[in-house]
Design a binder for these strands. Structure first.
Lengths: 195, 195
DNA sequence: GGACACATGTAATACGTTACATGATTTT
DNA sequence: AAAATCATGTAACGTATTACATGTGTCC
């Protein structure tokens, strides 16, 4: 499965990674903004998949600029330069392409869940250890769910509409995971004594 | 978020990637087996996240061997060598550590869903394009769900118990995604006229 | 004056991807 | 005899990760 979108590209036929497209989206929401702001945005977000380290973001901004998707406004800032980024027309086009049908098949075809990956190999463990795993997975997922729900209360749904919609999606998927894990626990508690 | 498990390690304090642990699991299920078999296993699996290219697997097997987690049995095979791998005691230990509480927090804290990532930026699109996106996402996810359900019918649940349990998890999460996307579509159809 | 948030970057590294290259065995 | 499957690998590449290094502005 390719981690890159095949759909669109820059002037040179370039394609973009998920993180690159995601950053374009973040810029679109709050331009002009600094690389630091983008890092914070990703860091704070509970449902972000990336660590958004400096080593990822600063080179990424340079790539986006080279492809003509963002424009830089430089301000003197002591001995340093503060750089604020905005989308160009080409950048808006790329972002729209990323969000436009047909959505890349690989993107719709899966959700990646590290717990699910592990469950595939539970047959290797003893019944007792299987239960230990499931109990821990359920408990930890519920902790995460608690955090998401607290955030939902704290944050106005009206203001950041699609932020809260996205967060609801994360909650829905985590809830589905818990229900599924519970049913697995139920199942192996019944049949477990055999193995 | 680190992509590596912090929990355990080899003799030299090494830690393993998700793919490495996953491969240990695959070997445990069907040892002895060749690197090629492992690639096929990952390739065929609908809920696998990795492409399992030769360039990923062959170096990975060498790493696992160097860490003492797998043992190789070599057979002459014309001008080439056929290599079959089995877990060592240390490999079994590593696999068990991966599957044992406490599960790494980062692993329980998220599910990664490329569609959800995109939904966060739907505010950037016009209401019409939002609907286009949602309709395509719903339709494509349902196609994927159809494939998973067909596989469920075709494959005996009794034989590969945790394979089918894992697949049910993928189905549960994709179903949750569809329900969520439908409610989003519903929501923006009502309120959409404003923006 | 110190802590903390704001801000910018580099260096070393490792991993997985795509693409390429080839040989052996079995099936049609 | 050809095609498909089984099998093994390398090369070039890009990207994200961890860790390091430093400077600015504000609040207490």
């Amino acid at each position: 499965v390719s981690r890159r979108t095949k759909t669109a590209g820059g002037d040179d036929g370039r394609i973009a990674t998920e993180l690159e497209n995601c950053v374009l989206g973040i810029i679109a929401e709050s331009q002009p903004c600094t690389a630091y702001r983008i890092r914070r945005h990703l860091e704070v977000s509970l449902s972000s998949y990336w660590s958004a380290s400096a080593g990822a973001i600063y080179p990424l901004m340079q790539r986006l600029e080279k492809r003509g998707w963002i424009r830089v406004e430089e301000q003197e800032w002591g001995s340093r330069t503060r750089r604020s980024f905005s989308l160009t027309r080409a950048g808006r086009h790329q972002l729209r392409a990323w969000l436009s049908p047909p959505i890349a098949t690989w993107a719709t075809a899966f959700t990646h869940d590290p717990i699910r990956t592990r469950v595939f190999f539970l047959g290797y463990l003893s019944p007792k250890r299987r239960l230990d795993f499931l109990n821990d997975a359920i408990a930890q997922t519920e902790t995460t769910l608690g955090e998401h729900r607290a955030e939902r209360k704290a944050q106005s749904a009206a203001l950041h509409e699609f932020d809260s919609i996205g967060r609801d999606g994360a909650i829905a998927e985590l809830e589905a995971r818990v229900r599924w894990l519970r049913s697995v626990r139920n199942h192996i508690a019944k049949v477990g004594r055999r193995t």
